[in-house]
Write a protein that binds this DNA or RNA. Structure first.
Length: 110
DNA sequence: TAGGTGACGGACC
DNA sequence: CGGTCCGCCACCT
């Protein structure tokens, strides 16, 4: 059985270490779907909450939480979960991406 | 079927 | 720093 796109996204997001951050585009690239960052966003949108998955560690390439009314509060929840991991989130949803970027994936993948 | 939309990204100004 | 534009691709009218 070939894992679905969503399953591959979830499997990769599950590998993000506590206290570290990844971007949508980074996840897409790691599962062999370069340029499909939007699809990663769709996959996370389909994720039922609450979830065991560390989905909150995924932010956009601009280094901030994607704030959207359509998320009905899940963006606010994301900020809360990140702060609980010791990651600073300012009023505009910005996070220290460069300093906490997840960089171990390339060596973990085969 | 066609066109608008979005939890994106990069180039540009 | 912030704002705009365009390419991208799956979803939803």
């Amino acid at each position: 059985m070939e894992p679905s796109f969503d399953q591959r996204v979830y499997a990769m997001v599950a590998r993000i270490p506590m206290g570290q951050l990844a971007t949508y585009g980074q996840i897409a690239e790691l599962i062999g779907a370069w340029g499909c960052a939007r699809q990663v966003g769709w996959a996370l949108r389909r994720l039922p909450l609450p979830s065991e998955l560390p989905w909150h560690r995924v932010v956009n390439a601009r280094g901030c939480i994607s704030l959207s009314l359509a998320r009905e509060g899940s963006d606010w929840i994301q900020a809360d979960l990140l702060r609980r991991e010791g990651i600073a989130v300012d009023a505009q949803g910005r996070v220290p991406l460069a300093a906490r970027r997840w960089r171990g994936a390339a060596t973990e993948i085969e």
